[in-house]
Design a protein around this nucleic acid. Structure first.
Lengths: 177, 177
DNA sequence: TACTAATTTCAGTAATAACAGAAATTATAG
DNA sequence: CTATAATTTCTGTTATTACTGAAATTAGTA
């Protein structure tokens, strides 16, 4: 596939952003490509389009699938796998947040709980530090619970909330102050 | 400084998490250490405590300062710099979000705007793809605006909103469905 | 001003992650 | 069942980043 200047710009930037978020360049570029294009693409043409090795595409595809960001689409009369990305940004955002929660937040909560338990009969760790760890656990639990409750609210409702709710909230807060 | 088992566990985990979020291990560990400890620490003892080179601490400290996550504290009768981290998790979260917005979201918005402008008189890029890029811009703008409006709401209000607002919202949504 | 402590910079090294290309495996068609 | 297409796995290479230790700089002290 031939990329237009605009597409190339988008894909290159997305790739760079990926590296800053713990995703490697190729993975992010493939995701950007499949997000933009209308028709599902096979691995070979993805490789050619992005100028990377076929094997690299294979690995990256697996990675994207493990995130649930792309899916395999069968194409009539073609035995090759074709891949397609979700197009809805709400859905993409939800998937990424869910996965990062599962991979990073949950293990951190587990670690914090362990710290709290283990430090209960621990004379060395100071009271203040124990408290700090407990506060961290409380804070992260709250954020986590909030996300769980909000993630299933339909996007249109969220949009409304964001556009009006925020203004009202901050207005109310200023009055109270 | 001597780390207790609990502290070590916390710091090591935080360091690993850092690597997944585009921050290197040492930087994240130093932040964790200064977050936990009560008294500000000088660079030398940070290096000894974490078992890394003094120069590495110097670099990492600069990085943390560029994020605004730690500050220098003068100690009477000691010419060495002492460092301390914010302890309030709301504040820490706000700082990190602000910085990531500035470093990653803003440049992405700029890129998207350029794409929209440049592709306006671009016959190659298909209508659908142009639209997709515009939608991405709209979505990210909305998220960005929402964050700007919420970030100054006082933490106690946010806590209340999270604990009650979320439940109400999701309840209302289910009824509507 | 000279001396010493503290910090930063820098160059080289080590560790890690990304990637290409070949080989092996799996799946499909005849 | 064989031949071939498609995909994956694996090994070695390259690129990138993290880090150390030494040297240079800065700042504070006598």
């Amino acid at each position: 596939m031939n990329l237009t200047n605009t597409m190339e710009k988008f894909i290159l930037h997305w790739g760079e952003m990926g590296t800053r978020w713990g995703v490697n360049r190729t993975v992010a570029q493939i995701h950007a490509l499949l997000y933009l294009t209308e028709a599902p693409m096979d691995a070979e043409s993805i490789a050619k389009t992005l100028g990377v090795a076929r094997s690299n595409v294979s690995t990256s595809i697996k990675e994207l699938q493990s995130w649930g960001l792309i899916k395999t689409v069968p194409v009539m009369g073609d035995r090759r796998d074709h891949f397609d990305s979700h197009k809805d940004l709400w859905e993409i955002t939800r998937i990424i947040m869910d996965e990062r929660k599962k991979r990073e937040i949950e293990p951190t909560l587990t670690m914090l709980r362990q710290c709290v338990v283990e430090s209960s009969d621990d004379k060395q760790t100071s009271k203040v530090i124990k408290q700090r760890i407990e506060d961290t656990l409380t804070f992260m639990n709250m954020m986590s619970d909030w996300y769980e409750q909000m993630k299933d609210v339909p996007p249109p409702v969220l949009t409304k909330l964001m556009k009006t709710g925020a203004k009202i909230t901050s207005f109310l807060c200023q009055k109270k102050k």
